[in-house]
Nucleic acid binder design. Structure first.
Length: 709
DNA sequence: AGAGGAAGATGT
DNA sequence: ACATCTTCCTCT
């Protein structure tokens, strides 16, 4: 049928490839796309060290680094990409700071004692952080976004997220913090086993560890150990320890009281915490001791005075107000300790709760740490504040074992020198993520059909490389792994791209081959998005982000390019934001296009309303109003159930006014979606269609429909 | 497996 | 009461 489609306004042009960082050798934050700046958050963030980070495949590393390093990015616009890394085999000593003395985060290493809070805000916007896309139908009404934005703005100490620790009370499947470490160890020891990495390495360049040949294979190795992810926990047995550990996900919602979500003052689930995990992670405990030992041993390297000095230099002073913008959840404790914010190098050994603190530092110097160190895992959990000091949080031993690559929360440039990692085809702005209790909802798709694609430009070598993909945040703060979403590997006949899974810290990473024969381009048709229960993640020790309304993510791609000098250049690019929640019935469909076509109702109008928000008992009411506002007529469109299809409604509009419409009429309509209140009036120009059916395509985007013919 | 709609559970 | 989150159900 003929159809007249009108252009869908693209309110948000696709931004440049979402390069997170500056270009060239500079690691600084990417150019702001114009986001608003929120200082408080930023600041907090800067302290964050998320537990996430870790280097390359297999490595779990967290930057041992104290969070501060990350925060630095903010203030350091230009960080040298070089200098990241150490020899693969090299011990700690082999690591070096980038020439610029910049930390991974991009912060100048020792020179800047304070973190510029405001500097990095908005930096992320460079890649189109705003939720948008040309795909009108995928765009959520701005009104809907607001809330979310507000929530995200909470300056949660997000980075405080401790990847390695799950709340003991979280569930039956909850594992000890150590379990994660264990997983890593077992899973990744081989390939990524690397020297302890200094947290301060330059994020972009790392020791050459990515042997093309080896690069991908690593993933394989990891995968083998990890096993395939549990797609549907509830239906399938857990096969992977790793998976459990890293996600802290549990198979199903416990029927225990925990489900009731009773929280203590800190928002922690008190009722359950006391209960020992019924089924502790099998591998967790046993290995813990081992890893801890290792860990402790390794930690000493970080105790060097130089390191401490550096860290302190980078950290902000105690005047910094952590309380500001800190989520309620964390604020309480944060305030209490804010004075001690000055960053201290935490002896790595930090505990995991289980590990007794080894203190290389005088108590007075690390008051907060001392506090944290006390108590066993459970105690910590119940007590408060350790999460306030991410850097003080326990680290997974493995974190330090293979830190040769930049942590996932480090900001990296999308291009440097001749290389540029670019997203050639952006993903659609909406992709409903699936829960573990559901089946997969498929791979993320591209706006125009097909799938997103990424290409590394400027690489002329014959060696294939590995493209890493993980789910990152899409809020105003620095890009980092998203705590509530994980990439989900899709396999099957329809998937042309092979991939392997690896877990870095608490983040699942998909490793995809970048082959010279394909011009170093990869079609991302193997990546779905898994949603973790907010309650599970929020209960993780150290996690300060809240999941509610935190439903936008970005696909983050990284590639590590071996350099002649033996180092590795790491590039990263993030996609436009992707809304992962089920579309809300509150979203208002709008007329996207209308077309005339033959219809069964002579004299009447048949309209096809396409959208995502039509519940089965939706009603569409059309109203014609006079200039003075009074209704000339109003009628409820009759829904043709037989023609009702997903995302669309077919309604029959009987002849109104008892006459054929021969000239355009401004019509308003509103939609009553099920039990929801009626939506606001939407306007469109009802065009005569010569007695034929009029097809209107509505979308959920909050954009003007204009007049079309 | 891949989607979409919704009921029931929770959070505000 | 209503917005969101999770879990289920259904269909292809």
């Amino acid at each position: 049928m003929p159809s007249t489609s009108f252009p869908v306004p693209s309110k948000f042009p696709l931004g440049p490839p979402a390069a997170v960082c500056g270009s060239g050798e500079t690691l600084g934050p990417s150019a702001p796309a114009g986001g608003t700046m929120k200082s408080a958050e930023e600041e907090h963030y800067s302290y964050v060290t998320s537990g996430i980070g870790s280097g390359l495949p297999l490595s779990s590393a967290h930057p041992s680094l104290p969070a501060p390093c990350h925060g630095l990015q903010t203030s350091a616009p230009g960080v040298s990409t070089a200098g990241y890394g150490a020899a693969l085999d090299g011990g700690p000593s082999s690591y070096f700071l980038s020439s610029g003395g910049v930390r991974p985060n991009g912060a100048p290493a020792l020179e800047s004692p304070r973190i510029e809070i405001t500097s990095y805000l908005g930096l992320h916007h460079g890649n189109g952080q705003f939720f948008h896309d040309a795909d009108a139908e995928d765009v959520l009404p701005s009104s809907k976004r607001s809330p979310s934005t507000a929530t995200l703005n909470l300056p949660s100490l997000e980075a405080y997220r401790d990847p390695s620790c799950l709340s003991p009370a979280s569930s039956l499947s909850s594992r000890s913090c150590n379990s994660e470490a264990s997983s890593y160890e077992s899973s990744f020891s081989y390939p990524y086993a690397s020297p302890q990495t200094s947290p301060w390495q330059s994020p972009c360049v790392s020791p050459k560890t990515t042997d093309p040949e080896e690069g991908f294979p690593r993933g394989l190795g990891a995968c083998g150990l990890l096993g395939s992810p549990r797609h549907s926990p509830s239906t399938s047995p857990r096969t992977s320890v790793t998976e459990e550990s890293w996600l802290g996900a549990r198979t199903s919602r416990p029927s225990s009281p925990c489900n009731k979500r009773k929280y203590g003052l800190n928002g922690r689930q008190l009722s359950c915490s006391p209960h020992p995990s019924p089924t502790p992670s099998p591998q967790g405990s046993p290995r813990v001791s081992v890893t801890d030992d290792t860990w402790l041993g390794n930690t000493t390297q970080y105790t060097s005075s130089a390191i401490v000095a550096a860290i302190n230099a980078l950290s902000t002073d105690g005047s910094l107000d952590l309380g500001d913008g800190v989520p309620v959840k964390a604020r309480k404790t944060a305030l209490d300790h804010s004075p001690s914010v000055a960053l201290k190098v935490e002896p790595a050994g930090e505990d995991l709760g289980a590990t007794p603190p080894t203190s290389d530092f005088p108590p007075e110097e690390f008051p907060s740490f001392q506090h944290i160190r006390k108590g066993a895992f459970c105690d910590q959990y119940l007590s408060v504040p350790q999460h306030l000091y991410p850097w003080a949080r326990p680290r997974s031993p493995t974190s330090y074992t293979s830190p040769s690559l930049p942590a996932l929360d480090w900001q990296l440039p999308s291009h440097s020198g001749p290389y540029e990692l670019r997203i050639e085809v952006q993903p659609k702005s909406h992709h409903r993520a699936h829960y573990e209790t559901e089946g997969s909802r498929g791979a993320v798709k591209a706006l125009a059909g097909g799938h997103p694609s990424v290409q590394l430009h400027g690489y002329m070598e014959s060696e294939p490389l590995t493209l890493q993909l993980f789910i990152g945040t899409a809020d105003d703060r620095l890009l980092r792994p998203h705590a509530f979403y994980q990439v989900h590997r899709i396999t099957g006949k329809t998937v042309s791209t092979t991939s392997h899974e690896a877990i870095l810290s608490n983040t699942k990473v998909l490793e995809i081959p970048l082959l010279p024969e394909n011009n170093m381009r990869a079609i991302i048709d193997c990546a779905g998005i898994l949603k973790l229960r907010n309650s599970d993640i929020e209960l993780r020790k150290g996690e300060t982000d809240i999941g509610r309304k935190n439903t936008r993510v970005r696909l983050v791609f990284r590639v590590h390019v071996p350099q002649p000098n033996g180092r590795t250049l790491s590039l990263q690019v993030a996609s436009n934001p992707i809304e992962c929640s089920q579309r809300s019935a509150q979203e208002l469909p709008l007329v996207e296009k209308q077309s005339a076509a033959s219809g069964p109702v002579l004299g009447g109008k048949r309209m096809v309303l396409s959208g995502h928000n039509f519940l089965q008992d939706s009603k569409v009411i059309f109203v014609e109003k006079a200039p003075d506002g009074h209704h000339i007529w109003e009628m409820e469109a009759k829904i043709d159930g037989a023609l009702c299809k997903p995302n669309s409604l077919v309604v029959e509009i009987p002849p109104f006014r008892n006459q054929r419409i021969t000239s355009p009429v401004q019509v308003n309509f509103y939609v009553c979606n099920g039990k929801r209140k009626r939506s606001q009036y939407q306007h469109f120009t009802y065009l005569p269609a010569n007695g034929n059916a009029l097809f209107l395509t509505l979308n959920a985007a909050n954009q003007p429909t204009g007049c079309f013919s």
